[in-house]
């Protein structure tokens, strides 16, 4: 029959997209997802993309100062991300974690910098 191969390949692609759609909609049906608006999803996606880029620089960076810079940037992005998550979950107690992060993460960076200078 002419066109059978084509139609079967088409149905394969269609099956693939159908499966992807079902998986995605299953993810969307989990109850934690319901309260999220589009803007909150965009914010979280941007912040996580920032963390991903910092991780790539951590893997790639030629020297150890590069890696330290990458983790320092990732720490700042993570602090903002924690505050965003606190806004999504809607509980004020969650801001305290971000407070601890904002106060403490720079100690690690300063320790690494002191080591590189030959201090301690």
């Amino acid at each position: 029959m002419p066109g059978q191969g084509q139609s079967s390949s088409y149905s394969k692609a269609g099956d693939f997209f159908l499966a992807m759609f079902i998986v995605l909609s299953l993810y969307m049906d989990t109850p934690i997802f319901i309260g999220l608006s589009f803007s909150e999803m965009t914010w979280m996606a941007l912040a996580v993309a920032g963390i991903v880029l910092c991780t790539l620089r951590l893997l790639k960076g030629p020297t150890s100062p590069d890696r330290a810079v990458a983790v320092d940037t990732a720490a700042t992005v993570t602090t903002a991300f924690l505050v965003l998550l606190g806004s999504v979950f809607g509980q004020q107690f969650y801001l305290d974690v971000a407070l601890v992060y904002a106060v403490l993460t720079f100690i690690g960076s300063v320790a690494i910098a002191r080591f590189l200078e030959g201090g301690f």
């Binding site: 993309a49 920032g50 880029l53 910092c54 620089r57 990732a74 700042t76 903002a80």
Partner: peptide
């Protein structure tokens, strides 16, 4: 935030 990470990369 995203642009800063892109700059680091």
């Amino acid at each position: 935030l995203f642009l800063g990470s892109l700059g680091v990369f």
